[in-house]
């Protein structure tokens, strides 16, 4: 499992595309939060509030594109190159392969967030340490859960096809659906009780309170269930080649 993990990470940095995508992600975030933004609220300096909330509002949308782009090749490329069979012939279970890849992408996710600590320290400095540390920690946890969900969706999208572009589109679609599609459907459905249930399937609904520093076990379990479900489906799809 660790071998898979190392291989994925190394592969990510082997080409320029990986780091460039990371840089783009950070650049867009930084520009929105510190320099230019469509409204005052998003810009930390003009809003005047000592909070990282703009990051936690913006980042989910950035991950919506970034993570499918990162995970699209996870299985699709191996399938196209025929290396998947090679991988599966090793003394590794399918589950180990999937989790190895999952944690590799999870580490990359953490890597995208580490430079944002600079934002945090800047705000600390500008506000004489009055930023709410606990709430900020909660928000980071929420963002990690959200990103992990996107990763599991991306892995699933990658395992069902050989074509990376199709994988990208499928995971984009599913991420969108899970991120805010359900709340959209709930809004349209009109019926409030059914709408509420539909809404509960959406990531946004569960991200909202964590990102403000309120940890609700229901939200945590939701994320674990979502991730587990997609990993299960991925595993089923991976084993289906033997049928």
């Amino acid at each position: 499992m660790f071998a898979i993990f190392k291989k994925e990470i190394r592969y990510f940095f082997s080409s320029l595309i990986g780091p460039i995508v990371l840089i783009l992600f950070l650049l867009i975030n930084s520009l929105f939060i510190w320099a230019y933004s469509p409204n005052d609220y998003m810009n930390v300096l003009t809003s005047g509030f000592a909070t990282l909330e703009p990051l936690f509002t913006l980042a989910p949308w950035m991950y919506l594109i970034l993570i499918p782009a990162m995970t699209m090749r996870a299985f699709a490329e191996e399938k196209a190159n025929g290396t998947l069979e090679l991988l599966l012939s090793r003394p590794l279970t399918e589950f180990q392969i999937i989790t190895g890849k999952f944690f590799a992408y999870f580490s990359l996710l953490i890597l995208t967030l580490i430079p944002t600590l600079i934002y945090y320290f800047s705000i600390q400095y500008l506000s004489h340490h009055s930023i709410d540390n606990a709430a900020t920690l909660g928000s980071y946890i929420g963002l990690l859960f959200l990103g992990s969900s996107f990763i599991s969706i991306g892995l699933f999208a990658s395992v069902i096809t050989k074509n990376q572009i199709i994988s990208l589109l499928v995971s984009l679609l599913f991420c969108l659906l899970f991120y805010f599609g359900f709340s959209l459907i709930a809004d349209v459905s009109g019926e409030t009780s059914i709408g509420f249930i539909i809404q509960q399937f959406g990531i946004e609904e569960h991200y909202y309170s964590i990102s403000r520093g309120l940890i609700d076990t229901r939200d945590i379990i939701y994320y674990f269930c979502l991730i587990a479900t997609f990993i299960l489906i991925t595993k089923l799809a991976l084993s289906s080649r033997k049928w």
Binding site: W34, P115, T116, Y119
Partner: peptide
Amino acid sequence: IQVINIGLPIIVIVLIS
């Protein structure tokens, strides 16, 4: 602050790469 917050994250990623 703007320069630090826009530039430094990129430098961090470049260094790691």
